[in-house]
């Protein structure tokens, strides 16, 4: 069992590009889209969806017969999800973070926690590749429950390639949890470097081995190399800033399928990654 997470800090650096092409050339890998706010791996993999299951979060439900409108629930809610109007308690579902403080603190035991659907998990197959995708409904404050559920599925998957959301917040923390390796995709720009640093700090904090891919590689690569060298992080691959990539990508085509040079680049990447994971498993973390 191995879990490889692809993240970046900055959005638009090529997480989905790298993950979908990587999964294509890896034998027996499962593609897992945890970029729940905008899961778009399916555009490139075109999976046949076999099952869709709903994901729920807990929200308070008030028994009007028991509630005495004391407003304690409203006071303890940090998120403004319960408002005491005097004659009734108004619940703003979409502000609720399911912390259950209201449920715990209600002196009348008038609150129960009910299910509310926040998104779904689709599973399917894309030309021999198993496919899993989490999708959060628009306007929802947190997709973490979806990611946690996907993490349970990952536990029984041989080799998972996990496409992470951008940034370094809760959804990313939960996505990369228990990874054997994190691949950080960056671009040689000041923005790319800035957000790479944030991602590196997070991954270090979580004590996960990591390596970097430079996408849209060009004359400014040195800023990434300097940083990686200083921090002992291996650069696994440079993907050139190539119009051909952009053209194929905009048509939803996997470049590892359409172009043999790029296919070879991703095959090399896959080999390096598998090697890193084996070394790590053998307790040799000198890379």
């Amino acid at each position: 069992m191995a879990k490889i997470s692809i993240l970046s800090g900055k959005g638009g650096t090529g997480k989905t590009f790298a993950s979908t092409n990587l999964v294509r050339v890896l034998p027996n890998a499962t593609y897992i889209d945890c970029d729940i706010e905008e899961p778009n791996g399916r555009i490139f993999l075109n999976p046949i969806i076999e099952d869709i299951s709903d994901v729920y979060t807990k929200v308070p439900l008030i028994d009007d017969n028991r509630c005495e409108r004391c407003g304690i629930c409203s006071k303890v809610c940090r998120f403004g999800a319960l408002i005491n109007l005097g004659r009734e308690i108004l619940i703003l579902d979409h502000l609720c973070h399911s912390c259950e403080a209201c449920y715990e603190m209600c002196p009348m035991n008038a609150i129960t926690m009910a299910n509310r659907k926040i998104g779904e998990i689709s599973t399917g197959v894309s030309r021999g590749i198993d496919f899993i995708e989490g999708r959060l409904n628009p306007g929802e404050p947190s997709g973490v429950p979806i990611i946690k559920q996907i993490n349970i599925l990952i536990k029984s998957i041989e080799l998972s390639i996990v496409d992470s959301p951008p940034g370094t917040s809760c959804s990313v923390v939960n996505t990369i949890e228990d990874s054997d390796l994190c691949i950080l995709v960056t671009e040689p720009t000041p923005f790319g470097l800035h957000d790479l640093k944030l991602a590196v700090e997070l991954v270090k904090e979580m004590d996960i081995p990591m390596a970097v891919i430079i996408n849209k590689s060009g004359s400014d690569n040195q800023i990434i190399y300097n940083y990686c060298m200083k921090n002992d992080i291996k650069v696994l691959m440079e993907i050139p800033y190539d119009k051909k990539i952009a053209e194929l990508y905009s048509r939803g085509t996997l470049i590892a399928e359409a172009d043999s040079t790029y296919e070879k680049m991703f095959v090399d990447l896959a080999e390096k990654i598998l090697e890193l994971i084996e070394n790590e498993a053998a307790g040799n973390s000198e890379w």
Partner: peptide, 16 residues
């Protein structure tokens, strides 16, 4: 300065 729900919390204060 709440991270979220500032509008709703403010509204609660106005009601009170």
């Amino acid at each position: 300065q709440l991270s979220g729900g500032a509008g709703a919390k403010t509204a609660q204060m106005i009601i009170e």
